[in-house]
Simulated scan of single mutants.
Amino acid sequence: MAMPTTKTPSPKKPTAKTLREGSTPKRTAILAAARELFLADGFDRTSVDAVAARAEVSKRTVYDYFGDKQTLLQAVVDGVGQSLISTIRRILDDTLTDPTEAADLEDVLVAFSMRIATDMLGSSEYVTLQRLVRAQSHHVPDGGENSMADAPEEALAERFAAFAEAGLLDVPDALLAADQFIALTFNVALNRFGSANAAEDARVRPLIVEGVRTFLRAYQAK
């Protein structure tokens, strides 16, 4: 996701070598260079020498900061994932403010969903995350997940719990409700069209609207 279907790598097991935090500008330059090269040339064909040259740092600096190429890949994926989480939280703050009337729920949930479908699922960051995870997942230790995997659902669950306290929703399990909301909206579009980018595909909005209505039939307080 990623939000609906994207999972990011689990942290690599610690090694005996202690990595340096180093200077922020150098770390940023290394990550930017690695991201560009992993996307353009793939993991296998990208060398640490090439990353160092593009970042204008020494090869030793790359190893001191990241340890090895797998850990560098993981750091790139995690950085993109955290950027997407920030986007999701901004959309939540912009759209899922506390409605005062039950009649407003459909409008705010559709507005939230459409923003996710355009600002997040339609973003270059999301495409980048998908490409990195799908193309490079066999190079990531354990092919696992990290803490961002459930972060969107947890953030949405917090809003649903607040709506329940206000008497607008009946959600005994807010996290389950968030999972089901995503399944009824974005995942339907992803499964049917292979994309949920509402900015490019007019078929996405009707699916989202119907998904929101189905969700409210199950969870809106009576």
Rank of each mutant, 00 (worst) to 15 (best):
R213A: 01
H139A: 11
K7I: 14
P4H: 05
L96Q: 00
N191P: 05
A40R: 15
K17R: 09
A151H: 02
I91E: 04
E153K: 13
T8V: 13
T128F: 03
K26W: 00
E154C: 03
A189L: 05
A166G: 10
L37I: 08
N187M: 11
V62H: 07
L109Q: 04
D104Q: 09
K59T: 07
A221L: 05
L207V: 12
V76F: 12
D94V: 00
P99S: 07
T185C: 02
E158Y: 02
A162D: 07
P11D: 12
G67F: 12
T24C: 05
E125M: 03
G67D: 08
S47P: 13
M1G: 14
L31M: 08
T118Y: 05
D119A: 11
K26D: 02
T185I: 03
P99E: 03
K69D: 03
S83A: 09
V48M: 14
M3Y: 04
A29H: 12
A32D: 12
A55C: 03
Q130P: 08
L96M: 07
F215Q: 00
I85C: 11
A53F: 09
D64N: 04
E200D: 07
L216C: 14
Y63D: 00
A177P: 04
T28S: 15
R27L: 05
D170R: 14
L176G: 02
A55Y: 00
T15H: 12
G79I: 08
Q130F: 04
H138G: 11
T95W: 00
V80T: 10
G42C: 03
M114G: 06
D173M: 03
G122T: 04
P152H: 03
P99R: 02
L168D: 02
D44N: 12
N187H: 14
D49E: 08
L73E: 13
G143Q: 10
P141Y: 06
T87D: 14
S86N: 15
F43Y: 14
D201W: 08
P206N: 07
F215P: 01
E101I: 04
L72C: 05
L176Q: 12
A117P: 11
D142P: 04
S113F: 02
D142C: 04
T18A: 07
R54S: 04
D98S: 14
A40T: 11
L31A: 13
A198S: 11
T100Y: 04
A161T: 01
F43E: 07
A218S: 13
T128R: 04
L132C: 12
N197V: 06
A198D: 05
E154S: 12
K17H: 15
T185R: 02
S195L: 15
R134N: 11
T95F: 00
A178D: 01
N191T: 06
V76T: 13
A218E: 13
V212M: 01
I88A: 04
E145K: 08
